[in-house]
Amino acid sequence: MIEEIGGARLKKSDFIGINECFKPIEREYKRGEIITTYSPENDTICIIKEGTVYLTTDNAENQRRIISFYEKGDIIVTCIVPESDNRIFYLSAKTNCKIDFVKYSKFTACCEKHCSKHQRIISAYIKKSHKKSLAHTDILCQQTLRSKLLTFFEYIKTEKGKNTFYLPLPLSDLADYLSVDRSAMMREIKKMNEENIIISEKRKITVIEDLSE
């Protein structure tokens, strides 16, 4: 069981009785399946128990864009969407997934017992969601391809607490997440290897230099 979500540490005992609060419905999805679409009418919270999920949309040229990615322990609210005509945001299973579905109204309303675990889950979701959105915005605002990569690596390195880590996304999907050309991204990663800034072995990255300097 995940014990920490977005910096808010959850005790294992906090998860005891969560079913009593939320009464979730568990569903399983195969790799590549569409889980659900975002809509103001979609009164749903998704709690990922296993697997990796992408939030994606298509741009004006019908090219896929990865808005965010979610892993075990993440909570997704599917009824909060930006005002956009004819734009569809949808969740898809990158890997085989197991997901709990909870009514948004149950998630946001305190249960009858006003239990601390319920409040901690909501607090953890708000903190992690805000942190994830700010991180992606910061990455996209970088002016060069190298800066985008270095900023992304710095966030992952800080999250994992070590200089060597595995990317949470395949490289082809990372290009979509960064909104860059994949071939150009691969050339930049090769240059960074040659300049001894990083060592990359497919999805395994070792940061040699201090990227914060």
Rank of each mutant, 00 (worst) to 15 (best):
K160F: 07
K106D: 15
N62G: 04
F153P: 03
C46L: 14
F69P: 01
T56M: 10
Q143S: 12
K132I: 03
S123P: 00
I126K: 08
I67C: 08
E194I: 01
I122M: 12
I189S: 10
I122V: 15
K30W: 02
L211A: 05
E3H: 05
T37W: 07
I122R: 13
V102W: 01
E112A: 13
K157V: 01
Y166D: 11
K204H: 04
T44V: 08
I126D: 05
K94T: 03
N62R: 08
I5H: 00
K128W: 04
E50P: 00
E83T: 12
K128I: 06
V77C: 11
S105W: 04
C79I: 04
L178D: 01
K190D: 12
T57V: 03
Q119Y: 08
F89P: 02
E154G: 05
L211Q: 03
I66P: 00
S13P: 00
E188N: 12
L10Y: 02
G6P: 00
C110E: 07
M192T: 11
I18A: 14
T95G: 07
I99M: 03
V81W: 06
N86G: 07
I66H: 00
Y125N: 03
D181E: 11
Y70H: 13
I66Q: 00
T108Q: 09
T44A: 14
K202A: 15
L145Y: 05
N193F: 09
A184C: 05
T56P: 00
D74M: 02
N19K: 07
D176G: 01
D74C: 03
T206W: 10
F152Y: 15
K113F: 11
L91R: 01
A135W: 03
K132M: 10
L171Y: 05
L10C: 07
I47D: 01
T108C: 12
E71Y: 11
I197P: 02
Y177R: 02
N42A: 12
S133I: 09
D100F: 10
D85H: 08
L91K: 02
V180Y: 02
S179Q: 14
L150H: 10
D176I: 02
Q142R: 14
K127R: 13
L178V: 03
I205C: 08
K11A: 15
I75K: 01
F152S: 06
H114V: 03
I16S: 12
S212H: 11
D100P: 00
M186R: 10
E213A: 12
K127E: 06
D176A: 13
R31C: 09
L55Q: 14
R187H: 12
S105G: 06
D100N: 14
S133C: 03
E209W: 00
V77I: 14
D14M: 08
A124H: 01
N163T: 09
E213G: 09
P168D: 09
V207R: 01
T56K: 15
L140R: 06
